[in-house]
Design a protein around this nucleic acid. Structure first.
Lengths: 255, 255
DNA sequence: CGTAGTGTTGAGTCAAGTCAATGGTTGTGG
DNA sequence: CCACAACCATTGACTTGACTCAACACTACG
């Protein structure tokens, strides 16, 4: 995207949205030793059972967290979008209980776990920011439990479409005109606990009802309000503007 | 339980299992101002939308985290057992995105959020311990997403039974001879994303197959190994002994 | 000893899954 | 530039696990 920008600037920005950082704090983040890697779609950042030695900042592209059951069924647990720190989850856990895989090709910055732990234990503003980021991840996961446990197929899919749109919009990744879903229908099925066949039918149903339009994987929201209603979606759980930090102006589709 | 013990000793113990604490750290935890409250079954510790001013340590009894959909369906997100710190989740989030309710009567210690935040920002050992505790909560929630998203009814129920048994055993709450499920079949249904009627049938099925025995809500494991297999259960995600802290001897049913 | 909350059971329905085939797109190498 | 291969999306026919509705039984407690 912005090749002239410091690779960790994205992390500075994200932590800064969750905690009040001084210039020294920002510099401390930028000073983290890191390594950039370009990755292909499908490559693993972390595998279930690994003892990861670094955390990754996702700079470009999309990634997912997933687990596989004993019978081989996959469940997607989270979708990471650019700016997400993959594996805050693993920062204080010795062995990873899930895998992280690139959904598309992309760019990541690997940061040594020990460096990040060090920074967090010595800088409480940064610690608070990171803590809050992990708590928001948890909040999203709670909503996913509800989505998968207590909503029917149509509701589930509408809900995840709304969630992605709002999160991407919040990061400034896509306009409100439409966004490209970075996953196949099969992956959407693994996100929602459904089968690919049924996902297909539900998407067609949403389209037939005029809630969305599709062209390949590009989804356009023809009736955002109705889609939110169908998906029982409220952005509250995303905790987007909860902050002592003054909320930036943002007016996603007038909500 | 042990009325002579300091009310926060349980918290000292739990944090101590996740981080190396010195005596000064332990004292700092014990010194947290707090208020004890006896609560009835069904009373709320936190309501969705609240801006909680304190975190609760659950000393006796059981509690649940839950959310309700727009259509009124309830999903239980987590079950808290004695020794759990309810609402670490909310410690750094302004407004709660879910409710916490007592499942049984019990005893809690309320600790001011600000006091706890203060402690965490000034004591990095305690911060690390608390961070790890919240990450383990997240890990459990990931497993719940998988459970509800990708397992069938029999697997789901076997899985949660295994999880409860192991967690309770780990806290020294019940023997391996049997444990009392602190919830109705309806609540178990809201935990697993099923209906009460179906939960009933599945429980009867597990009993008929000799995996468990039941007398009221007391569940006895007649074939622990088989139940784990049915539930696709592995205790790994509980991160019970992950620690630089020397793992305490514990041999839950020989696993 | 009645009442309310649970637990249990049966019969019928339906949302979502399964199986299987067909179409479309993209990319690649000859 | 075309043909093939691989992957993904779409569709239809059929099956099934879980839900719904409705009744009835048990237990605890006031």
């Amino acid at each position: 995207m912005a090749p002239t920008e410091h690779p960790l600037e994205m992390l500075v920005r994200e932590i800064g949205r969750h905690a009040k950082l001084g210039e020294a704090d920002r510099q401390a983040i930028r000073a983290l030793p890191h390594r950039l890697r370009r990755l292909d779609a499908g490559s693993y950042l972390v595998r279930d059972g690994d003892e990861p030695k670094h955390c990754c900042l996702l700079i470009e592209g999309f990634a997912i967290h997933q687990k596989v059951t004993g019978k081989g069924a996959r469940q997607i647990l989270a979708v990471c979008i650019p700016g997400d720190a993959v594996d805050l989850q693993n920062m204080f856990l010795a062995v990873s209980d899930h895998s992280v895989q690139m959904l598309t090709k992309g760019l990541v910055a690997d940061i040594q776990r020990s460096e990040l732990q060090q920074l967090v234990t010595t800088n409480s503003a940064i610690a608070a920011g990171i803590m809050q980021m992990t708590l928001i991840e948890s909040s999203i996961m709670r909503e996913w439990v509800v989505n998968v446990g207590r909503r029917d197929a149509r509701e589930r899919i509408a809900h995840v479409l709304c969630e992605f749109a709002v999160r991407m919009d919040d990061r400034g990744i896509d306009g409100m005109d439409g966004f490209e879903l970075p996953m196949t229908q099969e992956q959407l099925a693994d996100t929602t606990g459904l089968t690919p066949v049924h996902v297909n039918r539900v998407l067609k149903g949403l389209e037939a009802d005029g809630l969305i339009a599709r062209r390949r994987r590009v989804i356009q929201f023809d009736d955002w309000r109705a889609l939110q209603d169908v998906g029982d979606f409220s952005r509250r759980y995303l905790h987007i503007n909860d902050q002592d930090v003054v909320g930036k102006a943002q007016g996603m589709r007038g909500i």
